[in-house]
């Protein structure tokens, strides 16, 4: 499932333009982490969003292929159309993928520096134990 989340996230934020895109490594590490750390509903929503992204080229492009078999140009068109689809359910399902792609991309020091944002220190995840 992680590879499907990674695929959908990278399609949301591709490279090739002025700004660096989300790399497969970043997205994969993120997918692993979020599925290990998040609560079950959040994780389920993200998986369903990735599945929805994969199966909807038939709706957005009228092409009976899963998104991961699309060439780059069509994949980009699919990503754009699916997040703005007029079916609220489809749009909301992939919204979580897009949100997470943005969270992953925008927290990376490399991408932040491209927009003159300071790097984030690590999130310590600590708390008082006494």
């Amino acid at each position: 499932m992680n590879w499907l989340i990674r695929h959908a996230m990278c399609a949301m934020m591709p490279g090739g333009g002025t700004l660096p895109g989300l790399t497969a490594e970043e997205a994969h590490a993120y997918a692993q982490r979020v599925r290990a750390e998040s609560d079950w509903l959040y994780s389920l929503g993200l998986c369903l969003g990735a599945v929805m992204f994969a199966i909807t080229p038939i709706i957005t492009l009228l092409i009976p292929l899963p998104s991961f078999l699309l060439p780059a140009r069509l994949l980009d068109r699919h990503a754009e159309r699916v997040v703005g689809h007029r079916s609220y359910l489809i749009k909301q399902a992939v919204f979580l993928v897009r949100l997470n792609a943005g969270m992953c991309w925008g927290a990376s020091a490399h991408n932040r520096s491209a927009l003159a944002q300071p790097a984030y220190p690590d999130d310590p995840g600590t708390y008082r134990t006494d």
């Binding site: 399609a11 949301m12 934020m13 591709p14 490279g15 090739g16 333009g17 002025t18 700004l19 895109g21 994949l75 980009d76 068109r77 990503a79 754009e80 699916v82 997040v83 703005g84 897009r98 949100l99 997470n100 792609a101 943005g102 969270m103 992953c104 991309w105 925008g106 927290a107 991408n111 932040r112 927009l115 944002q117």
Partner: peptide, 18 residues
């Protein structure tokens, strides 16, 4: 922050990056 705006601006793909 950038990591929220990136998930929040409409669009996806090359268009979003632009």
């Amino acid at each position: 922050p950038l990591d929220m705006v990136a998930g929040r601006l409409p669009g996806a793909g090359a268009l979003l990056m632009e």
